[in-house]
Simulated scan of single mutants.
Amino acid sequence: MLDDTDGWLICHECGHTYLHLTHLAQTHDMLSETYRAAHGLPLGVPLVAASVQTRTRTQWHAHADLHMPALEEQWKPNTAQKGNRPRSQWTSCDEQDSLTNP
């Protein structure tokens, strides 16, 4: 679980607080998958503070009529398939564990 301090996340790498951990690639040269594996975080744990999640969800629902056409387009199997990464590019926790714990 991510540490939360007054609505801010604490980065396990540097100890600084953030609303979202988008600095991982630039500051720590890590993908979110690598960060999760290094710190035992399951894929379902968001790397975004709860306050940001709530604000994003509220804004999405307030403007759902604008978002739904694009979302419905992505629901079409042929369109959705184009946006997927090939299975060969997927990283598993086992692969990430070997990268972070040689």
Rank of each mutant, 00 (worst) to 15 (best):
S32E: 10
C93A: 12
C11Y: 03
K76I: 05
Q89Y: 09
P42W: 01
D3W: 02
D6Q: 13
E13F: 02
G15H: 02
N78D: 15
N78W: 10
R36E: 00
H67R: 11
T34A: 10
D6G: 02
K82V: 08
L66R: 14
E95A: 15
Q59C: 13
Y35C: 04
S51L: 09
Q74F: 11
C11L: 03
R85E: 11
H63Q: 07
H16L: 08
A25T: 08
K82Y: 11
S92K: 01
E73Y: 13
R55G: 08
T58R: 15
T27M: 06
A64H: 03
P42I: 01
A25C: 08
P42S: 02
D97L: 15
W60L: 15
T54K: 07
L47Y: 03
Q81C: 12
L41W: 02
C93R: 14
H63Y: 06
L2H: 01
T5K: 12
C14H: 07
Q89K: 15
V52Y: 03
L9N: 00
S32W: 02
A37N: 00
A38M: 07
C11R: 06
V45M: 04
K76G: 09
N84P: 01
H61W: 14
K76P: 05
D6N: 04
P69K: 03
P102T: 12
